[in-house]
């Protein structure tokens, strides 16, 4: 089926063409065609095990870590196939940041956590690094809370703070795309609200793809939504449209809570 949005080509930041991901023989993502629009928030929803994470992790090639996992078809970013031979994965991951389900700050100081990415991709003077750290933490709405304890271990932060730190850490590399895999599922409602606010703020500056199990969250933060079901992309469209007038029966069943 064709779930292509009506997008002008240069509006698509990442485009999947007949894209599949396999775990060994098992095809976890099946021949997908979709475009993730630039500078907008795309939500990916669907029942557990339908391949949301697999697809998301394919975009920055985190699936490379899994033995036996391989892809077929094309995943275009910057006019190049992400799975092409000419791709430097380290550079790619510098352009496509990721925030994980469980906050995973490094057991280092808050400062070193944020500075980790910039230090990887270039040598900065201390003053430049200071600036990047402050800027990133400010964007992640964490600066005021941690500015007096930048040298304290990041493991001392609360769950919500830690997740915002991970966001700041990803932003410090100055990525174009941010991938978020259920970034709020380990957080309480208040911390969740902060992250959602942040996503809305970052929209317009970054292309964001977020996997979520929370329909309200999808409607609150996203511009477009993709519904995955058992490895297939069932429906892809403007969020308000998809949630109010779904085209597919399976989408309707899912968003009305009939399964999943």
């Amino acid at each position: 089926m064709d779930a292509e949005l009506n997008l002008v080509d240069n509006e698509a930041h990442v485009r999947a063409e007949e894209f599949s991901v396999f775990y060994g023989e098992h095809e976890a993502v099946r021949r997908i065609n979709m475009s993730i629009p630039a500078k907008q928030v795309s939500a990916i929803i669907g029942p557990s095990g339908c391949g949301k994470s697999t697809f998301l992790r394919a975009i920055n090639r985190m699936n490379d870590l899994i033995p036996g996992c391989h892809a077929r078809g094309r995943l275009i970013f910057d006019r190049r196939n992400i799975y092409g031979n000419d791709i430097d994965v380290a550079v790619l991951r510098g352009c496509i940041g990721m925030v994980f389900q469980k906050p995973n700050p490094f057991p280092k100081s808050i400062y070193d956590n944020v500075a980790y990415g910039p230090r990887l991709h270039g040598s900065y003077r201390k003053s430049d690094l200071d600036m990047i750290v402050e800027e990133s933490l400010t964007k992640a709405a964490l600066w005021d809370e941690v500015k007096d304890r930048l040298n304290k271990n990041a493991l001392g932060l609360s769950g919500g703070q830690a997740q915002r730190l991970c966001l700041a850490r990803a932003l410090a590399v100055k990525p174009e795309i941010l991938l978020m895999d259920e970034p709020t599922s380990a957080l309480d409602p208040k911390a969740t609200a902060r992250i959602e606010e942040l996503i809305v703020e970052l929209r317009g500056s970054y292309t964001i793809a977020i996997v979520t199990h929370n329909m309200q969250q999808a409607t609150r933060v996203s511009d477009v939504t993709a519904f995955f079901y058992e490895g297939d992309l069932v429906e892809f469209g403007k969020t308000d449209q998809l949630f109010t007038r779904p085209v597919e029966k399976r989408t309707e069943d899912y968003i009305t809570g009939r399964f999943g």
């Binding site: 550079v91 991951r93 510098g94 994980f100 469980k102 490094f106 980790y116 590399v173």
Partner: peptide, 27 residues
């Protein structure tokens, strides 16, 4: 060492050696 540390570093664009030296070994 939690896998999440390693994934975090790799997702930021660190190479394997870099990850080992800066994240895994210190932890």
């Amino acid at each position: 060492v939690p896998r999440a540390y390693k994934e975090g570093a790799l997702a930021l664009g660190a190479g394997q050696w870099r990850t080992v030296l800066t994240i895994i070994l210190p932890a």
